[in-house]
Write a protein that binds this DNA or RNA. Sequence first.
DNA 1: CACTGGAAAATGCCGC
DNA 2: GCGGCATTTTCCAGTG
Lengths: 90, 90, 90, 90
Amino acid sequence: MAEKTKTTFAQGQLRALVERIERLEEEKKSIAGDIKEVYAEAKANGFDTKILRKVISLRKKDASERQEEEALLDVYLAALGMPESREAAE
Amino acid sequence: MAEKTKTTFAQGQLRALVERIERLEEEKKSIAGDIKEVYAEAKANGFDTKILRKVISLRKKDASERQEEEALLDVYLAALGMPESREAAE
Amino acid sequence: MAEKTKTTFAQGQLRALVERIERLEEEKKSIAGDIKEVYAEAKANGFDTKILRKVISLRKKDASERQEEEALLDVYLAALGMPESREAAE
Amino acid sequence: MAEKTKTTFAQGQLRALVERIERLEEEKKSIAGDIKEVYAEAKANGFDTKILRKVISLRKKDASERQEEEALLDVYLAALGMPESREAAE
DNA sequence: CACTGGAAAATGCCGC
DNA sequence: GCGGCATTTTCCAGTG
């Protein structure tokens, strides 16, 4: 029966998708826990975690800003017909 | 010079902490990307991602509800002066 | 001078917005204080505030669960191509 | 029956407390909604709400607190060899 | 007074 | 591109 086969197949697929997602979210959560532990350790060593978080977020911002610059640079280089020129600059 | 040694040590510690955190956040982000990919794949196979997300969140909610029930039980037991009664249930 | 006028106008607007927001946050804070007082009064009358808080949060959760169910229903109806079917139920 | 009277009284009290708290939380929520509206209006008038929020939160913090945080942040950033990183962040 | 847990705020993400 | 929603992060009050 074609319909049933299709439905069954879709069910199996769905099940597999849900499992994969839940597995990945599990991993993500676990890593989040690890991060928390590192902050706890930092605090135990006398660091101010609030400031530490700010430091991390500043560095993140710097990085993404740099990425933007690089993306823009790529656009300019591409416009000049020099698409791979800046590979070496990394 | 003791002070300088201490400062240097703290610097090294800070550096190490920042690196560990950033490494872990990298991993977390990568997994988030994987999850996104699974949703994309689901969509490509004809699944409605909005519903799929609902399914995932419902299952998550069921899990947290169970936890909430246990927390409530703890509160009630504590209120009855039986703080450790359900230790064994863990 | 058009530019200055525009700038001045924007300044006045900004000032007004900030004042309105700060005023509202003041009110919000005041109400939070009232809530605190009610809990204090409850405690003075022999109620266990921890349990009281649980009760409140459970009732809140029940409410949001109802909403969640309706949202889920919407998603399903939409998936079945019946986007406005339950408008009347609001 | 004294016990029953006491219990009934407590029930009525509890009910009243719960209602008062829920009423206040309702008001609080309503004001939060008003605040959201003001931000929406600000955005509609061309203001960057993200910056606007930052303005509000800066005004909330008192000056000396801000100075302390900034000083400590500078120390951390200097330890990481990023002395100028936070110029732009404010 | 430090810690934990829960509320509020902020950010990011998805679909339209 | 934006508005709304969900997640994440931050903050704060209560507790021991």
